[in-house]
Amino acid sequence: MSVDQATVRRIAHLARIAVTEEEVPHLQGELNAILDFVEQLNEVDVSGVEPMTSVTPMVMKKRQDEVTDGGIADVIVGNAPMTEDHYFMVPKVVE
């Protein structure tokens, strides 16, 4: 598997990372090197082996249904560049 330059631009856009035209060939090379490296895994026969979603053999911890958090609107919007009445303000997005 390898990526072409159009794919590099598309991935960058989906991740909202600004990539200049000059950077594209370089990134394409880097991504393909990573993909080549991972490609080696295809040499292992994994038929009948269930995909591993976790490396820790433990049961997921669950919470009781209680309200234990919140009421900290000041803190939540504390780092926002713009706020009003505890709302975040962002450049207008309308469908």
């Binding site: 309200v67 919140g70 900290i72 939540i76 505890h86």
Partner: peptide, 15 residues
Amino acid sequence: GASTEFGGEPNDHVS
């Protein structure tokens, strides 16, 4: 653990 209650002041039910 933040509340699911409807309404509420802006960003008050937020962890």
